[in-house]
Nucleic acid binder design. Structure first.
Lengths: 204, 204
DNA sequence: CCTACCGATCGGTAGG
DNA sequence: CCTACCGATCGGTAGG
């Protein structure tokens, strides 16, 4: 009977749940100090393991950032689908979208902040994916505003500028929400109302 | 007659105007790649000198960032003084402030972007100064909204949330202005009008 | 998951 | 403004 490495406990496997703990800790660090200013050693210290061990979960620092970006854009794409793609008037769909979009930025401000500040540092296909996502997201918002304008529901003239305004308003939440004192639901209502104000919704 | 170092041109002095060229180039680099991702060597290459020579103009990378931050907050403080501090109704002052504030973010989007993304990496007294400036700036905006509310000009309920909304709207300009196609003056008008919309200005 | 270690690059300094 | 150089730290790998 020969001694196997596992019996001697020379090699310890990654503990279950470590991947999630790494992401959770990274979000905290990135939100406070920024992605570039957080080294893999800083992150490992905060997680409670060695820097080399992080690479059992993410093959590079960029893959960790990409993981966060991917989860975030998937979530936001789903929100967009579920609101703008539903049945209802342009007003109803725009306000449903803005409500969910704002709630997400409150409940996931760390993720939103990390993506917003650092997506430009991604490379190759990841960067391409991010760019395509952002264009699609922006376009869908412009489209619903144009639709409402064509239907006579919205009085606003510049659909593209108004879409940028709504995006900037909501994305801004991620910068200050964690030190604010308002529930995500109430915030969502406020922004849904703001969106209708910006498109100059007319009484039907 | 002995040969002096200057005759042999061993030591060349900094050329006039180099300081401004460094700042100008840095603003381009920071806006595209980010402050943390731009090394002093990258910057020196883009300027056309050696990394060591940069230190004849700025004693450290942080001092270069601080120079940009200081110029920006001085400019914005002046804008705030010249608009909110003038005579006129709260509506007039709020709209004058927002107009200038938005124009600045169009004409100086690189500076605004650099400050907004990187002021957290400043240290010690510089960080304290930035924090104090931001609080003061935010407070002045809340105050004018409250004043308009007390005077019956504004119908909005939450002055603090509305102040954040106006700030987020304008700061957002810096993210996309350089690829947009609108004059600073027209943009200023749009945002001045938006601000009055957000505070729910009542007919006087 | 660890120890040990690597080449590259960083911000910055000395000295002319 | 340059050449030459420094210690520190970076992301990442080998191997158990």
């Amino acid at each position: 009977m020969e001694a196997t490495p596992s019996q001697r406990d020379i090699v310890r496997p990654p503990a279950p749940g470590s991947g999630e703990r790494i992401v959770e800790t990274a979000l905290d660090q990135f939100a406070v100090h920024g992605y570039a200013a957080t080294s893999m050693r800083d992150l490992a210290d905060a997680v409670g393991m060695r820097a080399a061990s992080l690479y059992n979960h993410f093959s590079s620092k960029e893959m960790l950032l990409w993981h966060i970006c991917q989860w975030t854009i998937d979530s936001l794409s789903e929100i967009q689908q579920d609101t703008l793609g539903q049945e209802g008037s342009p007003s109803e769909r725009l306000s449903a979208f803005t409500r969910s979009f704002a709630q997400f930025h409150a409940t996931h401000s760390r993720e939103a902040l990390t993506v917003e500040h650092n997506w430009r540092t991604l490379e190759g296909a990841h960067l391409d994916t991010l760019r395509a996502y952002r264009r699609k997201f922006y376009r869908a918002l412009v489209d619903i505003i144009e639709e409402g304008r064509a239907a006579g529901e919205f009085g606003v003239r510049d659909s593209e500028l108004t879409a940028l305004n709504i995006l900037d308003l909501v994305i801004g939440i991620a910068n200050w929400y964690r030190s604010a004192n308002i529930e995500p639901e109430a915030l969502g209502e406020h922004y849904a109302r703001l969106a209708l104000l910006l498109v100059e919704q007319r009484p039907q």
